[in-house]
């Protein structure tokens, strides 16, 4: 079973913005801008809340439920929960509260609570996000709608089967494998700062699966490697420490029928990546590398 039926197609909304985004501002400027925007949103929210009542603030959750072996849950449904709201509350906090206070069978993966373990990528208000780094105050609608990642088989409630995702990751030979290593076991390989900078963003991937879930191509072609796996291939193909021979092998892997050429640059992966990895750019760059490479052998 899949949640595709439930899917609301909101993921494409801002693909254009990210293409036309002015490249000149520094990360600091961008961060300050986002902060100002958030502050004004928070102000607005505060005004709204003051008007509402002096009662305890609450937030409503609408959560996808499914369990293949429990009576009443074999048919997917949504359950409503109302939990107390506090400033700074994340979607994960709300889920934990609902589970620990109302229904201990409410099931979702989570571990680190700080956006590094990649366990809790969910479909929140129609978009792939990490529950732990999604502030409820930042969401637009009054009710938070929480579903499992689309395009993956649901195991139970918000838990999806990640096996296919892991298989795709492993299909790109995702491990460092240098042509040559220093003979001395106490001598490091050298890597220029520029080269490290080049692969830096690609090494941030936390295998959460948000990108692949957001990708229309991956949804239609189960064999497509998908953005996360291709990014992993990029991470090694661009690492100067590995050497030219290995790079050739890597380019052959991503060039296959279900590799980089399937990508139609819709930017949905880049949009949802919680680690801000420029996935689409990485895929495009591998396409260019593959072409250059093929020309070389003509």
């Amino acid at each position: 079973m899949s949640t595709q039926i439930e899917q609301e197609t909101e993921t494409e909304e801002s693909a254009d913005e990210s293409v036309t985004e002015p490249p000149v501002e520094s990360p600091g400027d961008r961060r300050r801008q986002q902060k100002r925007e958030r502050a004004s949103r928070l102000d607005e929210q505060r005004r709204v809340e003051e008007e509402v009542s002096e009662d305890e603030e609450t937030v409503s959750l609408k959560i996808f439920r499914y369990d293949p072996e429990v009576e009443g849950k074999e048919e997917p449904r949504f359950d409503d929960f109302t939990v107390p709201f506090h400033k700074g509350m994340t979607v994960l906090d709300a889920l934990i509260y609902a589970r620990d206070h109302y229904d201990s069978s409410l099931t979702f993966r989570h571990s680190c609570r700080q956006a590094v373990c990649g366990s809790d990528a969910l479909f929140i208000n129609g978009r792939q996000r990490l529950a732990c780094k999604t502030q409820i105050g930042d969401l637009d609608s009054g009710t938070v709608r929480i579903e499992p990642l689309p395009h993956q088989a649901v195991v139970k409630d918000l838990v999806v089967d990640m096996e296919h995702f892991y298989d795709q990751m492993e299909a790109v030979e995702p491990y460092f494998d240098a042509d040559d290593l220093p003979d001395d076991e106490l001598e490091e390989q050298y890597q220029s700062r520029e080269n490290r900078e080049k692969v830096k963003m690609s090494t941030r991937c936390i295998w959460c699966g948000a990108c692949t879930s957001s990708c229309n191509i991956a949804a239609g072609d189960n064999e497509y490697l998908g953005p996360a796996a291709i990014n992993k291939a990029y991470r090694f193909a661009m690492d100067e420490r590995e050497g030219e021979q290995r790079k050739q092998d890597r380019l052959r892997i991503v060039e296959q029928e279900h590799g980089v050429w399937r990508c139609q640059t819709q930017f949905s992966c880049t949009e949802v990546c919680p680690k801000d990895i420029p996935l689409t750019e990485h895929i495009q760059e591998l396409k260019r590398e593959a072409i250059k490479n093929n020309l070389k052998f003509w």
């Binding site: 491990y175 220093p182 490091e188 050298y190 890597q191 690492d239 590995e242």
Partner: peptide
């Protein structure tokens, strides 16, 4: 510890680097 750290460098650990490319 030194041998272990160089070992993971040989396994591709993306360490921060100095100007000369060393760890």
């Amino acid at each position: 510890a030194p041998e272990e750290v160089i070992q993971i460098e040989h396994w591709g650990m993306p360490f921060s680097r100095e100007e000369d490319g060393g760890v």
